[in-house]
């Protein structure tokens, strides 16, 4: 048994050493921008009409990855629904009054912050995924404090319509501009709230989808699976 630990250590140290050495010699930390990065830094504002380059890459240049990403989240939800055994809801101890009253104040504020983050996702740091996590945390707090269960059916519907909306906007791009996820709406002025064509719309859909999906996952885990 001793040997196993020693071997594991040797493996780990070798791995870290070799990879760190070859990275540092060939891709030194803080090296110049790569070809791809230079292109994005120079052309993103002109091509997509939004100042947040990460958002531009996530939603526009590499939008297909993001569609895959929300599919992965859907898969997590499906997996949790499919795999978790259904158990009768156990009685949970009533939450502390501080939590019970605090939720009434905090809940709308968290939701508001989430909405702000998603709407300004193409201008400032943030966007659909971050906002989705924030909004889901509000619902998580709600479930924990009131030990109540949400109407998951409506979350599932929100999620499916938002996801299908994303995919269908992509398909619409094929007919409007000849390429999937083609940005067929007017781009507007840089730094404006209403700018960037389909980017903010897609990001809002992603926000809806992510928030409802994360809520579903957490709530299924708390309940112990779906009713069958």
């Amino acid at each position: 048994m001793r040997l196993k630990y020693i071997l594991a250590w040797i493996f780990v140290i070798l791995f870290v050493g070799v990879v760190a050495y070859s990275l540092q010699t060939e891709v030194p930390f803080g090296h110049d921008l790569t070809k791809l990065a230079k292109y994005y830094v120079d052309n993103t504002a002109r091509e997509t009409g939004i100042p947040n380059f990460v958002t531009a890459i996530v939603v526009s240049y590499r939008g297909f990855d993001t569609l895959g990403e929300v599919t992965v989240l859907l898969l997590a939800t499906l997996g949790v629904i499919g795999i978790l055994p259904w158990e009768k809801h156990k009685k949970v101890k009533k939450a502390h009054p501080v939590l019970l009253w605090g939720i009434r104040i905090v809940f709308p504020i968290i939701l508001l912050v989430g909405v702000y983050i998603v709407i300004h996702g193409h201008l400032t740091p943030g966007g659909g995924f971050q906002a989705g996590a924030v909004v889901a945390s509000a619902f998580l707090l709600y479930m924990v404090s009131l030990s109540a269960h949400l109407d998951l059916e409506s979350f599932a519907f929100t999620e499916s319509i938002a996801g299908a909306g994303f995919a269908l906007i992509g398909v619409a791009g094929i007919f409007a501009g000849g390429a999937f996820l083609y940005n067929f709406l007017p781009k507007g002025n840089l730094f404006d709230l209403f700018s960037g064509g389909i980017i903010p719309i897609v990001y809002i859909l992603i926000g809806l989808k992510v928030s409802s999906e994360l809520t579903e996952v957490v709530s299924h885990m708390m309940k112990g699976g779906a009713e069958q």
Binding site: L67, T71, L74, E153, A156, F157, E159, S160, I161, G163, A164, A167, L168, V171
Partner: peptide
């Protein structure tokens, strides 16, 4: 993808 997403519906 759109059809899978709409599965609950």
């Amino acid at each position: 993808l759109a059809i899978v997403f709409l599965m609950p519906i």
